[in-house]
Design a binder for these strands. Structure first.
Lengths: 157, 157
DNA sequence: AAAATATAGTTACATTTGAAACTAATATTT
DNA sequence: AAATATTAGTTTCAAATGTAACTATATTTT
């Protein structure tokens, strides 16, 4: 029996499933971050990265957070206004600045990390260590495949 | 050695990885659909669903496509204007209408299905049948976990 | 059967996002 | 060392998206 090539079950289509899953998770997390910390997901990513590697520039943070420069610029602006990060112009390149968490920023980070980790743990509840590793490897492989299939989008995002 | 609970490697954080992966894939597909068929992802989902089950109402399509009613309404409007679908008011409920693909719509569907399937195949190139099944089951499990963890978002999407 | 409630879909308005143009500084070429 | 091109980050403007209010019909309650 031949496969019907004119039909496609959307709910079995990998891109659809991934988008749907990531949508549910993102909205759920966004809700928590915003309610408890008045923080967007973009801001949260910036904080997490600066916390890990203080002194990066906006561009570097953007690369690591998969945020384009407009988004980074806006997230940084909001974080600075909220007193959560500060910037220091680089002496050798006055266009760019190094980013640091303020004390407030560090406190937020220390509060939000357990929340995020807890959420991840809940998501993965029921997965064995082996399965988590499997999943991890699947995602890595899909990532690199997806990168190869880009028709050609610009850098960053 | 204790784990440092005040740090979190973003690129190992499942929600981040899923969002990133689904973003790359979605943008890549959106680019193809739009360039070759002048179709948004939402419109594509609607066409795929009506193709599979002709006669559904907007709400029913929305449920299956994970699109809220505003998005469905807009996708349907564009599809109808482009002559790709048509609507027939339901005799027993004059608020709602049944949706059908026009001939044009069917042609589009028959052209886009192989494209989508091909893209999925390319993504999964290198995955064995077993691994695809594994991945499938992981996604299902994550889906239901994610649903349970919703803090309480509305229906749909 | 009138009134109240709920549902399908649309419209209006506000917010978010992204692309392109822009400014200021640095790096490269001539 | 001017001129040209590139890069970091910002701003502007347009398009996409989400929320809430709305219209029309259907259903339920009194």
């Amino acid at each position: 029996m031949k496969k019907d090539v004119t039909a496609l079950k959307l709910n079995r289509f990998l891109p659809y499933r991934l988008t749907k899953l990531s949508g549910i998770i993102s909205r759920s997390l966004a809700e928590r971050y915003s309610r408890q910390f008045d923080l967007t997901i973009q801001e949260w990513r910036v904080i997490a990265i600066i916390g890990e590697k203080p002194g990066l520039t906006a561009r570097e943070v953007g690369d690591l957070a998969s945020l384009d420069k407009v988004n980074i610029s806006r997230a940084i602006e909001r974080l600075e206004k909220a007193g959560r990060i500060n910037r220091e112009v680089l002496p050798h390149d006055r266009r760019a600045f190094a980013l640091y968490l303020t004390e407030t920023g560090k406190i937020i980070l220390s509060q939000i990390v357990p929340l995020a980790q807890n959420y991840e743990n809940l998501l993965l509840e029921g997965f064995s260590a082996d399965e988590i590793e499997q999943l991890d490897s699947f995602l890595n492989r899909l990532d690199s495949r997806a990168d190869e299939l880009i028709p050609h989008l610009k850098e960053n995002n």
